[in-house]
């Protein structure tokens, strides 16, 4: 695309530039503790979570204000999801799942602010989230069920001859889980943002700019939907995996 930019003259496509990690102060190499734009937007997502869940509920009102009812809605939404999908005994893991949901939701929506940095579009972030879920689920499964957890891979209802093959497939699909779990989130967010950037590149051409701006608007609306749905999907899949760990009866 860079070559295209040279050839086309006016058109400059740099859809991936928005994902660059840069140091906020100075321009030295990025070490582990360097304060970067990642740090800034992660901190802003903390601020967003605090604004949404803590500051709105300071009054403890019996009749909720607007902010408080949003907080209660988010609470009830995730709580019901955990209860319905994972089961009543999984309510203890609710704060953990709520943390994932609130972080992904806030990071996704903050990423939609023009000029912002989308933390959830980076595999580094989503892989950590997905691996956290994967490790939690695997460890919990073995701690709660012992070796019976391996029954998850041994499909007892299938014909005996098929079972080894199915076991191989089950094991593979089990280990693909964190991969798809993380890439789904980052891929969706990154693809949407990149497409918006591509449309924005077309907007430099006066002839197609109305269509390009229309396209940006449409993609932006879709991205708002995707931001929520990906947070929801990530959370509900976490619940499903957690259910496997707690009740591996298949």
């Amino acid at each position: 695309m860079a070559s295209e930019a040279k050839d086309g003259g006016g058109l400059v496509f740099k859809p991936m530039d928005q994902f660059n990690v840069e140091a906020l102060f100075g321009s030295g190499p990025i070490g582990v503790f360097t304060i970067t734009n990642v740090t800034l937007w992660l901190a802003l997502s903390i601020v967003a979570v605090i604004c949404m869940m803590v500051l709105t509920t300071t009054k403890h009102s019996m009749v909720p204000s607007r902010g408080q009812s949003i907080a209660e809605l988010a609470y009830g939404f995730v709580y019901k999801m955990v209860e319905d999908v994972t089961g009543k005994d999984a309510v203890g893991y609710f704060p953990y799942i709520m943390t994932l949901f609130m972080f992904i939701l806030c990071a996704n929506f903050l990423g939609l602010i023009p000029g912002s940095f989308t933390t959830t579009s980076h595999f580094a972030v989503t892989v950590v989230l997905a691996m956290a879920v994967f490790v939690t689920v695997t460890v919990l499964g073995f701690v709660k069920n012992g070796t019976k957890f391996l029954g998850l891979f041994w499909v007892a209802s299938a014909p005996l001859a098929l079972r080894p093959i199915l076991a191989v497939i089950e094991v593979i699909s089990y280990f693909v889980r964190p991969v798809s779990h993380s890439i789904r989130l980052a891929g969706n967010v990154m693809a949407g943002h990149a497409v918006i950037k591509v449309f924005a590149g077309f907007a430099a051409l006066a002839v197609v700019s109305p269509i390009a701006i229309l396209g940006i608007t449409a993609m932006y609306a879709l991205e708002i939907l995707v931001s929520f749905i990906q947070a929801y999907v990530f959370t509900i899949l976490t619940c499903v995996y957690l259910k496997d760990a707690l009740h591996p009866s298949h």
């Binding site: 990690v21 990025i30 070490g31 582990v32 503790f33 360097t34 970067t36 990642v38 740090t39 992660l42 901190a43 997502s45 903390i46 979570v49 605090i50 869940m53 803590v54 704060p95 953990y96 709520m98 943390t99 609130m102 972080f103 933390t119 980076h122 580094a124 972030v125 950590v128 989230l129 956290a132």
Partner: peptide
């Protein structure tokens, strides 16, 4: 830059977890 991101992400998650 993965180390940098993971470091700050873990801090973020811990903070959000305790706040929540």
């Amino acid at each position: 830059n993965w180390g940098n991101q993971i470091f700050w992400l873990v801090i973020t998650l811990i903070v959000i977890y305790f706040v929540l």
